[in-house]
Nucleic acid binder design. Structure first.
Length: 683
DNA sequence: GTAGGGTTAG
């Protein structure tokens, strides 16, 4: 079982043996002709085309059928984009067991066992679908990664399934993962028939439990029974049986397994462990398709055999090949740096501090955590960076605890990171605790930013009165950074009266910031209080502010292009509008519903929808998409705040176009990537 | 249209 397409250096060779490199045409969508699903799947080649394919299927309404959706779910998951698998899954009208099984596998395949188990629970709670033979091995695989969920397989097996070879192999694997090799062997020896997968499970299971002798004995039995080793058997035993390694290499060459990436990687590691470095390039240079493990293995081979400079050169080569380093790459690099004893390199590594923050802000938490552990030390800087990573909020306090255990002294920035984290995850009590500890134990006097964080924290969870009283009790005069979050919270929770209070303070403090007028106007508009909208507009107009149009700029080829809302004078306006229309249709098919509450005009709902796409940042983003190579990061500067609807749309655009989009507005920066967004303050 | 078993560090 496997992906029907062999992915090779950015191209895909279909199972029909035809190399497809062309892009699918969007023309089909326009002609609205009957779509040949099978033909499209065959023609689907690169990941870029998968999205085109999906768009076509979505337009034709076929993406919602369980048959087509199942294929899409699998295709996305094989390309590593499990969130698109989930989007597709959610839109299926009548999910059958194929659809459920595919979704569960998509999670497992992408190492998201927690979500897989959650999905299984959802499936079990339904009456219209039951787990089947295909569900069980996947569930067991998920459970193997989650010891706490081990009992789940009993619940499934109680459903009355007989074991087949897939189920048995999975059970053997799971028990070995939990250290019960004997129990696994009982299942293995009682099996009426075994395929190569079952043998592999038992062999690797013994190895995992440190019992190489038993593992090799099972391998001998397998060969005696006439079962031929496959690529998986070879990859397993190469990592342990170094003495027989060269013989196995001959077997690999003879049986055409050398082109299998797992086998090649295992060979590199074997030669590295044997100290036979001269054999390493021989294998590595002949690998047809290299993955991250191939690069890590070859870098580690030189690093561990005391050739750090060669390892660093290979890292550069990896970089030139546009392969992103991961945790293990950086582990090897750290060792290289240590071996070289070069202070400059050590400094470079320390400057990864970011990067922890950057990785965290773009949602790549595993990288952030890894980098953090590389550099965490005596200063609070990396600790602050990791604590401010979004998505880690509920564990930020744990990092704080660890930081104190390491005797690193927190600073006012540490508490800003912590309060920010508490605010984003609604941890009000913990936030209050931080605020108190900061002053009483560390004698840090809160700044306006700390107060602003507290107000934001109360406001986000709807504690508007608490937030207001908190501001009233402040020993220093609150500024716009304190009243602003309250007004924002009033906008979210729809409290017009509190919003009026907050904005009156804001107008007094900073009457020139049009953003405050916009927020209040927005709040009125959301409740249909058009007299309030007009009042705020008049006020702003009287102060010469309302005429300030929203604009967004983008720099391209050393030239700055500026876009105004609805401005039609740009030479590419027609092209931009067409692309925007197409993107709009696609994101709607992914479930996007325009949030017209951000349109500050008393017009009909339909018309509001037409106003939103003209927001200047969208024009600038689409201009960027049209004029830069695929996957180039798009950076936008906007003079006003990004509205909530643009925020949602940009998230989806980043996902659809695989673009990293950074928007800096008058208040914060927004980092969009893979359909997610993290925002940050400028501090 | 859906499933199991495989490679990298410390």
């Amino acid at each position: 079982m496997g992906f029907p397409y062999n992915i090779c250096q950015g191209q895909v060779v279909t199972s029909y043996g035809v190399s497809c490199t062309g892009n699918l045409s969007y023309g089909n969508e326009e002609r609205n002709r009957e779509i040949d699903v099978e033909g499209l799947f065959r023609a689907c080649t690169k990941s870029e085309d998968v999205k085109c394919l999906h768009a076509l299927l979505a337009v034709s309404g076929k993406a919602k059928s369980s048959f087509v959706a199942t294929r899409l779910i699998n295709m996305y998951s094989y390309f590593g984009n499990v969130s698109l698998s989930r989007d597709t899954f959610d839109q299926v009208r009548d999910k059958d067991s194929y659809t459920w099984n595919s979704m569960i596998s998509a999670y497992v395949r992408n190492r998201q066992s927690n979500k897989a188990v959650k999905c299984v629970s959802e499936m079990l709670s339904r009456t219209d679908v039951r787990p089947d033979f295909h569900t069980i091995p996947t569930v067991l695989k998920a459970c193997s990664a989650l010891p706490d969920e081990a009992s789940l397989h009993y619940r499934i097996l109680k459903s009355g399934f007989e074991w087949d070879v897939f189920v048995a192999a999975s059970l053997v694997h799971m028990y070995c993962r939990f250290g019960f090799a004997d129990r696994a062997y009982t299942i293995f020896k009682d099996m009426p028939s075994r395929d190569t997968g079952c043998w592999n499970s038992m062999i690797s299971g013994y190895f995992q439990n440190g019992n190489a002798k038993e593992a090799l004995s099972i391998l001998d039995d397998m060969i005696l029974e006439g079962v031929k080793m496959d690529s998986m058997t070879v990859a397993t035993i190469l990592s342990v049986d170094l003495l027989r390694g060269m013989l196995i290499h001959l077997f690999v060459i003879k049986h055409g397994l050398a082109f299998h990436v797992f086998v090649s990687n295992a060979l590199i590691n074997m030669y590295s462990k044997l100290g036979e470095l001269k054999c390493v390039p021989n294998v590595f240079d002949h690998v047809y398709v290299r993955d991250i493990v191939s690069w890590n293995s070859v870098i580690a081979a030189y690093e561990q055999n005391n050739h750090p400079y060669v390892a660093i050169k290979l890292f550069h080569r990896m970089h030139l090949n546009k392969v992103q380093p991961d945790l293990l790459t950086l582990v090897s690099l750290s060792s290289c740096v240590a071996q070289m004893k070069d202070p400059l390199c050590v400094k470079c590594l320390r400057e990864y501090c970011v990067l922890i923050n950057l990785y965290g802000k773009c949602g790549r938490l595993s990288e952030a955590i890894f980098l953090f552990y590389q550099v965490c030390g005596e200063t609070s800087v990396p600790w602050n960076a990791i604590m401010s990573c979004h998505g880690l909020e509920d564990t930020s306090l744990k990092y704080f605890e660890k930081m104190l255990n390491e005797e690193v002294k927190p600073t006012h920035v540490t508490f800003l990171s912590l309060l920010n984290a508490c605010s984003h995850s609604g941890l009000v009590d913990q936030g209050k605790w931080c605020f108190q500890v900061m002053q009483q134990e560390y004698e840090i006097i809160p700044t306006l930013k700390h107060y602003g964080c507290m107000v934001d924290m109360f406001g986000r969870v709807g504690l508007l009165e608490t937030a207001y009283n908190f501001i009233e009790s402040m020993p220093i005069r609150p500024d716009a950074s304190v009243w602003g979050p309250l007004l924002g919270a009033c906008r979210i929770h729809g409290n017009v009266e509190m919003g009026r209070k907050a904005s009156s303070h804001l107008f007094e403090l900073d009457s020139q910031d049009v953003g405050h007028y916009v927020l209040l106007s927005n709040l009125y508009a959301n409740f249909g209080r058009w007299e309030g909208v007009n009042e705020v507009r008049s006020l702003a107009r009287d102060r010469g502010l309302w005429k300030t149009p929203g604009w967004s700029s983008i720099e391209l080829n050393s030239r700055v292009e500026v876009f105004y809302s609805g401005n039609q004078s740009h030479p590419q306006y027609g092209e931009i509008l067409k692309e925007l229309g197409m993107l709009n249709a696609k994101i709607k098919s992914l479930g996007y519903i325009p949030d017209t509450s951000f349109v500050l005009q008393d017009v009909e709902a339909d018309e509001k929808e037409n106003i939103l796409p003209n927001h200047s940042e969208r024009l600038a983003i689409v201009f960027g998409i049209l004029n830069t190579p695929p996957k180039t990061c798009i950076r936008i500067y906007k003079n006003l705040c990004v509205c909530g609807d643009c925020h949602n749309v940009t998230k989806l655009i980043s996902k659809l176009t695989e673009r990293e989009i950074i928007v800096r507005d008058s208040n914060r920066f927004h980092h969009f990537k893979d359909g997610l967004c993290s925002c940050g303050d400028y501090w």
